[in-house]
Design a protein around this nucleic acid. Structure first.
Lengths: 340, 340
DNA sequence: CTGAAAGCGCTTACAG
DNA sequence: CTGAAAGCGCTTACAG
């Protein structure tokens, strides 16, 4: 396997010159550069990232931390977005999955001594105070994507949930719904996702529009471990909704996948959607259109790009013009809320 | 940032001993090991992968190459599967996207001199002869996942398309369909995906069951670039099908997403599914159930795990008991083929 | 069981 | 514009 030295010998120059020529840094004469490039080509030379990294102190690696799985609609889209801006800049994107608070703990605790990454993008994780302290003290920049709070992150990208919920509740209000509710997902108890913030935003938006406590209900998400399956969680939630005293005529559901399953379960139980209960989701994922689900569209792919742009600037030591970016959702109206 | 040397000083031993103790290699006394572990903890020590890599010659990195996007159902599931087995073994999984033949070319041509990965998993790419030659000569093992041919790869994992198509055609035959066809996807012209193999397998299966040339049709996939959008490709294909002389009463479609879109377009054009045309997809992806699509289920998540297990063994220099694994699909019957 | 030392393949001041 | 040399932080024979 050819090394810098081999290329240097071939081109009749020193390794320093080869290094400079290949990376386009420092002045190297046109002629020398060409000679070197040819020599490099001829032996299929590729820089050893390990050696470069060790010498330069930069790993050219950014880690993207996601909860539970890489292959969810949100996570995979965010990773793709980040990849699109990081790859052309020469960085490897290294996914890291955490499933339990121990996983996260191990990851965060190793951060202070970690020389294996130049930046971190963290998806849908809110940091408790201890982690905030650790993140603040490390030299590696971190960007929170879809985090509830800015705490601990050098920069954040998230969706404006308050405006989103105003859009949703506004639609329900204009359709004449007087009793409305919010349905939280079953959750991974080790992570405080965006659920609480989203239901809080829902309640605030509703009160602003004149709904009072008796007209509002929140179906709280339970620990996912309580259920044998996703389907069981859905049908249990469906039953709770149906049995509810002064049952709402419209529901905002935390995410599309749950809303879609719920719509199916409700209909199976004889509840008509949207006539008896109207439904609004959140995401506009790949199944929402087919399900005829009215929803709040967000764009994790774009969020991944933005987070990557931020981390890129931070890694270059730049000061961000807008470290905390708030994106707006788009209300997409479909059958699950009936005709406008 | 603490280095091995710092830990050694703290524990009062040499760096060699620290290195051995931390990695659990070589004999180190219980007492020494504990002292070292404590010292390491206390300064949040983490090994520098770059330095380890440079010294040991192993990068602890495996690249997974996918076409066009990370966030497709197939690709993201495969990556997740690979991650699950590679991460516990200490390897980073580094996704790499190729969109054009130039991308692939650049990647493959750099392989011979590449010291930046220990193994490669390549998804849905068939190698032409030149690449086969390059791959054969490099020292890094490669696993082909969903490749049409074994050529060039140290090992492969794929689905048995011949059996799959026999399942599908068998169902159509038993349902009494006498004129049947296969619909290819619009394709990325830079990559020869599995389309041709799949339609070939369809034709073989159909002939074996007694269908003759006049009863069979193949709607060939066109260069995706010809269309302004996916929807346009779909509606064009739909029109071709409808206009077909001696139109088939049942179609196998190359993948679910296209089948689902096609079902929608056909119905919109007044063709009843399954009464006028029955449809069978391929994948059983997350939308197939909702669409009521009969389909051939495959499991890219499992394929990713298997490919990772193979590459792991190859990287350890082991000889594979079964280098070429063929998985079976499961026929999942739903409304798009009517009642059995 | 432990240590001294060479070496992995680069980058980067420092000189010239 | 170019080169000699130090050094990045580890691993791994080699000795003892």
């Amino acid at each position: 396997m050819a090394s810098l030295q081999d290329v240097a010998d071939l081109a009749g120059v020193s390794v320093s010159t080869v290094s400079r020529a290949l990376r386009g840094t420092g002045r190297v004469s046109e002629a020398t550069r060409n000679r070197i490039k040819q020599a490099a080509e001829s032996v299929h030379f590729t820089l050893s990232r390990s050696a470069s990294s060790l010498a330069s102190g930069k790993t050219m690696r950014v880690s993207i931390v996601v909860i539970d799985r890489i292959n969810t609609w949100f996570n995979a889209s965010a990773i793709q977005g980040a990849y699109e801006v990081l790859e052309p800049a020469g960085y490897d994107v290294v996914p890291r999955v955490v499933s339990t608070s121990e996983d996260l703990d191990a990851f965060v605790r190793h951060l202070p001594g970690n020389r294996n990454l130049d930046g971190i993008i963290v998806v849908s994780i809110n940091l408790d105070d201890e982690y905030v302290r650790i993140l603040r003290d490390i030299t590696v920049p971190s960007v929170g994507l879809d985090a509830r709070s800015r705490a601990g992150y050098s920069a954040t990208v998230r969706v404006d949930e308050q405006v989103a919920m105003r859009q949703a509740v506004g639609l329900l209000h204009s359709l004449g719904h007087r009793r409305i509710g919010f349905v939280e997902m079953p959750n991974n108890p080790d992570f405080l996702l965006s659920a609480k913030r989203r239901s809080g935003a829902f309640l605030r938006a509703a009160r602003d529009l004149g709904y009072n406590e008796f007209d509002l209900s929140v179906f709280e998400g339970q620990d996912f471990g309580h259920f044998r399956s996703f389907d069981e969680a859905v049908s249990q939630t469906s039953s709770r909704i149906i049995a509810q005293f002064r049952r709402p005529t419209a529901l905002c559901v935390e995410i599309d996948d749950f809303a879609i399953a719920l719509q199916y379960a409700l209909r199976k139980a004889g509840i008509r959607v949207p006539e008896d209960i109207a439904l609004i989701g959140f995401d506009d994922n790949s199944r929402a259109e087919m399900a005829g689900l009215t929803t709040l569209r967000q764009d994790p792919h774009r969020m991944g790009q933005l987070a990557a742009e931020q981390i890129l600037q931070l890694m270059q030591g730049q000061v961000l013009a807008e470290p905390h970016q708030l994106l707006q959702t788009t209300l997409v109206t479909r059958q699950s809320t009936g005709a406008l």
